[in-house]
Design a binder for these strands. Structure first.
Lengths: 334, 334
DNA sequence: CTCCCTTATGCTCGTTCTGAGCATAAATGG
DNA sequence: CCATTTATGCTCAGAACGAGCATAAGGGAG
């Protein structure tokens, strides 16, 4: 763009107020890289110093775009080439910085979600694929209500009850109800809300790091691996987004090999969404939406009767406005 | 949804392969502020110098969070207090900057979507509410196919045909089909994809600014107001997001007054989505999802028979996992 | 005052979609 | 050959959906 014809947006009244532009800041790029192998949703984590973290690095001058910068960091750190990449969120609280003090740099961070087809052995020794339920044990409902809720539920209730006043208490109770669906329906997409509540209640390690709150008997620090800075929060957001998107865009197929069985597809969807689906209805849905087509081959690697191998039918993108894998239902039995 | 992975074309630049952290950069904050009055979806635009633009300003040191910085800029520029605010996207191509040359600053920009309840007279003289269809005339299908498609369709086809080679041509044709649904189904959510295609095809003013392409008879520059830098792109993204979100979260109610009629609600949804809905089915949907409750009052301001006034039933948030205004159907007649 | 236009509201009917099962098929490992 | 496992086919009732018909209740024109 030519500078003369396209001035950058500037305040309508530049004189209106003081406030120095924030020059001392750094832009970080972080990637939540997701794959599915068998029954497990995997995320690529880098072990580096103390905590596990997501592949990430600062935006550099020679990065043409943010996404390009991200790809280059990921490849440098994990030797993983990314396929489908989408931006998740930009974190930029002023307190989110490297050092304290007057010349504290504000650490802006742009988080991305990337989907890759297979979990390669993760070239670098420091990079490893981890099930994302290692970080969020309470998000896996495939075998029913996780036992960990015996600790979560009373802990959160205690936190709500310990509110400074009734109004805050009611607010907390409502947020709990919304996020966890205690009593009513649970929404598997509200991963971030759940994590944030546990954070605020001081039940995850990061929340304690931040506030210096000690875990109490009523509100114990939960099992579930922690991550550096706010990387676990980014992961929560990524899971939430993916669980939502899977329903109205055919993104699961970005995670599948070129040909696969319907059972494998269902396993992948269940792994991501954390719930079990009714098998027959799932296949009916996939087939009647014509999301897949026959390859003509079959495999008996899956156990019982050999299964047809199918492939994603790309043309469906042009035919239906919002093809996706709507989750037909839940229930532990299949 | 996120901007398509194909970035808007930008002139290739020789890469100095230096790995310097990018210190010289500015963070911009921009807001797409949406309201609905009667039949029109409105966006708050600031006239400043040449082009219209979105309320925006740089992130400053005293802004505790990005969102807070945004609110402060918006209030300073438009005297509008924001309600529901959500982050849209962060733009950060290296070419997106003020000046060329060695010390070019990279201009990162974080765009937000804000919903406000009523279109106040826009305090500042420079700020004005504009129908968003002024910027995107091709997005309003409430009265059937907009006449402007007589220019769009052949223009885009010519662009696809003018591809440097067959592969690119096929790719372009597929993207057109996907975004505009020529022939098949149209997806009202693909606002951004449509804008980006028109941009690449040199059919919107911003695309010409970028490339210095002249409009040709086959590919005329379309009517539709332009905006500064990439603000129209941000608006496209905001519309796309809102059109999507309205279907699975009760966000329309953020735009409605405390009490309203079902007709007004339908008008708002139609204004946002750009399509007409079947009236009876729309009401059935709203009522059986128990999204609203009776106020007991009625109004005859709407024309014919007086209508009941209802209000949003907030408790629905706790009851159903994903309450939203699914669009019951289309068709010009009601 | 009545007719007509307008918007609101109620209800139906056939189709499609969904949830939940029953039943059969075709491998594998004793 | 049998038990086990996964794949696949099919049914059936209830809910949701698309498309109308029909009536109600205002205001304005004549």
């Amino acid at each position: 763009m030519s500078p003369s014809s396209a001035p950058l947006p500037s305040p309508a009244r530049p004189d209106a107020a003081a406030g120095t532009a924030d020059t001392a800041l750094s832009i970080g790029l972080s990637a939540v890289i997701v794959a599915v192998t068998g029954d497990d949703p995997k995320v690529l984590a880098v072990r580096h110093g103390g905590h596990e973290q997501l592949p990430s690095g600062p935006l550099e001058r020679n990065h043409r775009t943010l996404e390009q910068g991200l790809r280059s960091w990921v490849e440098r750190q994990t030797h993983q080439v990314l396929g489908h990449v989408e931006q998740l969120y930009t974190f930029g609280d002023r307190d989110r910085r490297e050092t304290d003090g007057e010349d504290a740099r504000r650490a802006l961070s742009v988080a991305y979600l990337a989907l890759v087809r297979e979990a390669r052995p993760a070239g670098d020794a420091d990079a490893a694929w981890e099930s994302w339920y290692r970080y969020f044990p309470w998000e896996d409902w495939r075998d029913g209500r996780p036992a960990i809720f015996d600790a979560i539920e009373p802990g959160l209730r205690a936190w709500a009850a310990a509110a400074p006043n009734a109004a805050v208490g009611a607010m907390r109770a409502e947020r709990l109800s919304l996020a966890f669906g205690f009593g009513q329906t649970r929404d598997e997409e509200r991963v971030l809300e759940r994590y944030e509540l546990l954070y605020e209640a001081g039940m995850v390690a990061e929340g304690l790091r931040e506030h210096g709150v000690a875990p109490s008997p009523e509100r114990p620090c939960l099992p579930g691996a922690e991550m550096a800075v706010d990387h676990r929060r980014m992961l929560a957001l990524a899971i939430a987004r993916l669980r939502g998107k899977i329903k109205y865009r055919p993104v699961v197929f970005e995670l599948m090999p070129p040909s696969f069985t319907l059972g494998q597809l269902q396993n992948a969807v269940e792994a991501l969404s954390g719930v079990r689906l009714h098998k027959q209805n799932f296949r009916r849905l996939i087939e009647q939406q014509r999301l897949v087509e026959e390859t003509g081959e079959a495999t008996s690697e899956t156990g019982g009767r050999p299964a047809r191998l199918v492939r994603f039918r790309r043309e469906v993108l042009l035919e239906r406005p919002a093809p996706g894998v709507r989750l037909p239902s839940a229930g532990v039995r299949r």
